[in-house]
Design a binder for these strands. Structure first.
Length: 493
RNA sequence: GGCGCCGUACCCAAGUGGUAAGGGAGCAGUCUGCAAAACUGCGAUGCAGCGGUUCGAACCCGCUCGGCGCCUCCA
């Protein structure tokens, strides 16, 4: 039984969908005016995992994630670069898919854009005006927060408190300082659509209400996003949606915590952010990072807590993954035993399934879930001492893959994520590791195998100096050799 | 001023009333030609501090200290 922390009630609650076996969820995506940073990655990842887990629990999940493709920041960016808004949004939507693809974030069921739903937005705005919850002034339309009695119930704020703390310049035309724009009149040269209030464009909050209603209905199961969206974005969505329909909007509100740098929120305004691609492209980071490493790192903390991003944290994630792929390499090798302790293996697998499920059911406790994997890794390593049958080796590898799929981990065939980038072009070989990056490797697999064969010969002749030299040569290229008891060796990048 | 979050070993991190998971690093050992990997052993008498409730508290309550977030665009 999955329990989720619901921001709306401030409690953990058992998740029960409106329709049995069906889950409808909406997550606020990004405003496409720049590359995504790790904070965006975390949010996307958390809900990707939630979606995967719900699916593996047997639910049919409709997952909607929007792109905000009309916005002040986009207009600003377009003007700066003297290109159209469309050029900006197209570029960054594509970049989003590339970056998230490398992270192994699956594409949502629907990924609507605000500009594709202008008619729905206008309709919803008209509905709010007709109900007396919104008013038009000089081509702008505002939602009147005082008319929605429950305003503040998500963020646990009272209108009076907000008023006291408001630091914004008050627009004289607004009836209440917290009233927010549903529709904005446009200046010449800005993207604009015909509306009952003249040429204009939608405000930020209304698009999510319009699109979620369109794709998921007036009431749906889960609404997610980053903590910073609780107020005012999600609060406003609730006001708009519930105001218009008179029905509950979303039943479970799930919010992920921030990625921090040195204990501080990572954000554009603080200038302390890292984009996903700069991490993949190495830049300041001394070691190569793949999607799976970043994924492992981000999942090693519970989604609700802040997670501190650092070079060391990334290294630790990488090391932890190394351990798993070392085991998978062993499991991929020919079995040395026909029997092995099958019962013990079966028991370990069942224990892991159970603790993994319990961890995930407990508000997606991914750190505990990873601990379950670590436990299995240790037990299987022990059982591999005496040896396991070929079938058991295959089965337990599949178990890691199947269970790991919930987290988007352990899907690669072999440990190829530690590829070293060598500066000599003559040796460069492009290697692709879906769902990771394409990077340049110093040696092809065949070249490595040849070196390995050479070294095994040297070892047979007791020419350890030669054997060590070859090992050292490969090591300098980032390739590690492990000798097995039978005289052969395995290697990894 | 209002609302809220966090503080667990050298590091990361679970646990939220029943007597401190897990991982990494470190040290010692087994194995190995040497390594690597794996395995074994060692590591918080204590969970920021101080009080309180309780048979029992890291977990509940109060206060204090330290760090952070939201109230303005923000994942």
């Amino acid at each position: 039984m999955l329990k989720l922390f619901n921001t709306l009630t401030g409690r953990q609650e058992v998740f029960e969908p409106i329709e049995p076996n069906k889950v409808r969820m909406y997550v606020c995506g990004v405003t496409v005016y720049d590359y995504c940073h790790i904070g965006h990655a975390r949010s996307a990842l958390v809900f990707d995992v939630l979606r995967r887990y719900l699916e593996s629990c047997g639910y049919n999940v409709t997952f909607v994630k929007n792109f905000t493709d009309v916005d002040d920041k986009i207009i600003k960016r377009a003007n700066e670069h003297r290109v159209s808004c469309d050029a900006v949004t197209t570029k960054y939507i594509q970049a989003y898919h590339e970056d998230m693809g490398k992270l192994g974030v699956r594409v949502a069921t629907e990924e609507p854009k605000a500009t594709e739903h202008i008619a729905d937005i206008i309709q919803l705005t008209e509905r709010l005006v007709a109900k007396g919850l919104a008013y038009a002034v000089e081509g702008d339309v505002y939602f009147e927060v005082a008319k929605y009695q429950e305003y503040g119930r998500l963020s646990k704020r009272r209108l009076e408190d907000l008023q006291a703390g408001a630091r914004v310049d008050v627009d004289e035309r607004k009836r209440h300082p917290m009233d927010f724009a549903l529709w904005k009149s446009s200046k010449p040269g800005e993207p604009a659509w015909e509306s009952p209030w003249g040429l204009g464009r939608p405000g930020w909050h209304i698009e999510c209400s319009a699109m979620s209603m369109q794709h998921l209905g007036e009431t749906f199961d889960i609404h997610g996003g980053g903590m910073d969206l609780i107020f005012p974005h999600h609060e406003n969505e609730i006001a708009q949606s519930c105001g218009a329909t008179g029905k509950e909007f979303a039943r479970y509100w799930v919010h992920n915590g921030f990625v921090q740098i040195n204990q501080e929120k990572m954000s554009k305004s603080l200038g302390n952010f890292f984009t996903i691609r700069e991490i993949f492209e190495k830049s300041a980071w001394s070691e190569e990072v793949t999607g799976e490493i970043l994924r492992y790192f981000l999942l090693s903390t519970h989604y609700h807590s802040p997670v501190d991003f650092s070079d060391q944290a990334l290294k630790e994630a990488k090391q932890a993954l190394n351990g798993f792929y070392d085991l998978f390499n062993r499991l991929n090798e020919p079995s040395r035993s026909s029997g092995g302790d099958r019962d013990a293996l079966q028991a370990a697998v069942e224990r892991t399934r159970k603790s993994f499920g319990q961890a995930m059911d407990d508000d997606l406790n991914t750190s505990a879930a990873l601990a379950a994997f670590q436990g299995l890794r240790s037990e299987v390593n022990k059982l591999l001492g005496p040896g396991l049958s070929a079938e058991d080796q295959r089965r337990v590898r599949e178990e890691f893959r199947a269970l790991g799929n919930n987290l988007g981990l352990f899907q690669l065939d072999r440990w190829d994520f530690n590829v070293r980038i060598e500066p000599q072009p003559a040796h460069l070989v492009l290697t692709t590791f879906a769902p990771t990056v394409t990077i340049e490797a110093a040696m092809t697999n065949a070249q490595i195998e040849a070196k390995l064969a050479e070294r095994i010969d040297a070892k047979k002749c007791k020419d350890f100096q030669r054997a060590d030299a070859i090992r050292e040569e490969l090591r300098s290229l980032g390739i590690t050799i492990e000798d097995k008891p039978d005289g052969t060796s395995r290697w990894k990048r």
